[in-house]
Design a protein around this nucleic acid. Structure first.
Length: 550
RNA sequence: GCCCCUGUAGCUCAGUGGAUAGAGCACUGGCCUCCGGAGCCAGGUGCAAGGGUUCAAGUCCCUUCAGGGGCGCCA
């Protein structure tokens, strides 16, 4: 609709030009929603922009443009208002028909063809399997899963992936820590590695291994024992992470192993390309990626002086695989703000591989501070004292967790106060929205009990202000989805859900649905059903449940 | 020191260069013969500070202040 109106305005200006009444063209026509409903459904400040170069008053320009406007059938009227806005109001009849449109579309209402089937990979969470997930990972998980829901509904072929970092210094550290704990469990006096993982979960993990394997691993040669224990530990850690994510309703098409990049040759191939491009140099016994030649402020190590590749080298190989082997058109990585410094060198590496850096989109989200009232809970895995994501989910509930994570923009830091989240469980926006859905379900149940067949309901009877306001809200869903798919910022969705719920509650209060008036009852039941479809869709996009009863 | 993010109502946060800056929580009043009162309606205070660009700035640019993150042969 916005595009349609923008086009109309453009054509009007063009027509005016041909008649010689207007001369310049604006760079682009922006259509917005006026905040004041009295100003109609859409508005454009086009005339204000043109006025200066026209040497005319904005109002005069607006009037001139409106003279040449040929309106689409959806629009009822156009008005020109001081200081020069052109406002459009939707036709009531068209609005009412949208109820039928929604009913016919059902769950697919709002789906778009923006992506035209292009392949998009979204990689998120990807936490090291060296400890349980914490709330920060939860934020990334919810962000990623919601975004992928929307991209899929917007016509992209989306693949969700978790990158498993199963090698490198932190994994060695994890392994040594676990081996030490394992030996301690069996009564040996060994000390933990200096920078080791000190959390209690490591002791639990060691005990679990003891109960399954006894002291069998103790009798192996140390190197063999460490390899074995690493394998067992990582597998158990990953199983826990998968379970946490499942509870949060986050799933992945693929769990991609970092190690496989070395076993299956992507690492060698990617390095060969960098070498061929002349981006690689050996210095101080290490191998460097010369990102400075691509405008970076410093070079980065690919292979350490001890011969082991860095995380950065792995990541280059990984992206080689994503783009060159798996042919994703767009790759979206969702990272915590602590990885922000990794972005420029990754972009540089992508360019060195011969890929357009625009195809790699990186979303960073600011870190989460977990607190319980006034008390701040630190999230460091290594120091040990953490509250896991699972504990938070158990305490607060999945729906509330998801909603809270979603309703802040990724750019802003967030305090997650467990006490507050729980307290709000009774009276907060999460339940406000779900309550609207339960209420709708209840009305529809009653209609069913009374055997009211509203399939022939006449939507043209929906004419009061609350009904039309509700419809206006309903039809904003596709536009919201488009905005989110374009900006990759899903935090608008919970706000939309609240506005929709408000419009419904208000309608419910003012308009009796099931009444003596049979025709009106059927028409309103159609509207109620359409509201259910849109509300449920919104909740499902957010990964939340749409309860029939509460 | 350099780079990134943030600063909006008492609190938690929205706000695509446009018209009177919004929502939830908290606080105060109303509203249940009838479909779910976990609801509806009403009530007020605010864009960190200072410059600039623009017909128009919470939004763009610069400076200062404050908070968070980064600047590893960690990931």
């Amino acid at each position: 609709m916005k595009q349609k109106l923008a086009l109309c305005l453009q054509q009007a200006v063009l027509a005016a030009q041909q008649q010689g009444t207007l001369v310049t063209m604006p760079p682009e026509v922006i259509i917005e929603h006026p905040q004041n409903p009295g100003h109609g459904d859409f508005a454009s400040g086009l005339a204000l922009k043109l006025a200066r170069s026209m040497k005319m008053s904005p109002l005069a320009v607006a009037h001139k443009i409106s003279e040449y406007l040929s309106l689409p059938p959806e629009i009822d009227k156009v008005s020109v208002v001081s200081p020069g806005f052109i406002n459009f109001t939707l036709r009531d009849e068209w609005l009412k028909e949208q109820v039928e449109t929604i009913l016919n579309a059902g769950e697919s209402y709002g789906n778009l063809d923006l992506g035209k089937g292009s392949l998009v990979q979204v990689e998120f969470v990807s936490a090291n399997p060296t400890g349980p997930l914490h709330v920060g990972h939860g934020r990334g998980a919810v962000l990623g899963s919601t975004l992928t829901n929307i991209l899929a509904a917007a016509g992209y072929l989306v693949e969700k992936e978790y990158y498993v970092n199963n090698m490198g210094a932190q994994i060695d550290n994890f392994t040594r820590s676990l081996y030490a704990r394992y030996q301690q469990c069996l009564g040996r006096e060994v000390t933990m590695p200096s920078e080791g993982y000190l959390g209690n979960y490591m002791i639990d993990l060691a005990q679990e291994i003891v109960s399954e394997y006894g002291n069998k691993l103790l009798n192996l040669p140390q190197e063999e024992a460490i390899t074995k224990i690493s394998e067992i530990g990582l597998e158990k850690m990953m199983a826990g992470i998968k379970e946490d994510l499942r509870l949060l309703r986050v799933d992945f098409e693929r769990w991609f192993s970092e190690r496989s990049l070395y076993e299956e040759g992507q690492y060698n191939k990617a390095m060969a390309i960098l070498q061929g491009g002349g981006y690689v140099a050996k210095r101080e016994n290490a191998i460097w990626f010369e990102s400075t030649s691509l405008g970076e402020d410093k070079d980065n190590v690919l292979v350490r002086s001890d011969g082991s590749p860095t995380y950065f080298a792995s990541d280059i190989a990984y992206h080689y695989n994503k783009f060159m082997e798996r042919r994703f058109h767009t790759v979206i990585n969702i990272w915590g703000a602590d990885h922000q410094g990794h972005i420029p060198r990754m972009k540089a590496a992508i360019r060195a591989l011969g890929i357009d850096p625009e195809q790699l989109k990186i979303i960073t989200y600011q870190l989460v501070t977990l607190r319980r009232g006034e008390e701040i809970v630190k999230l460091s895995k290594r120091s040990g004292d953490i509250i896991s994501l699972r504990e938070v989910i158990d305490e607060v509930g999945v729906d509330a967790c998801r909603f809270i994570f979603l309703s802040r923009s990724a750019d802003s830091q967030m305090d997650f106060d467990i006490e507050l989240a729980k307290r709000q469980s009774v009276e907060n926006p999460v339940y406000y929205v779900q309550y609207a859905h339960a209420r709708i379900a209840s009305i529809l149940r009653l209609a069913e009990q009374r055997v009211i067949d509203y399939s022939q309901g006449d939507v043209s009877l929906l004419s009061t202000e609350p009904e039309l306001t509700l419809i206006r809200r309903l039809i904003l869903l596709p536009e919201s989805m488009e905005d989110i798919a374009t900006t990759l910022q899903p935090h608008y969705l919970p706000y939309y859900a609240q506005d929709l719920a408000t419009a419904f509650h208000s309608f419910y209060k003012q308009c009796r649905v099931i009444s003596q008036n049979e025709a009106l009852t059927k028409a309103r039941l159609k509207l109620v059903k359409a509201s259910q479809i849109v509300l449920a869709k919104t909740l499902h996009l957010m990964g939340m449940t749409a309860p029939e009863k509460m």
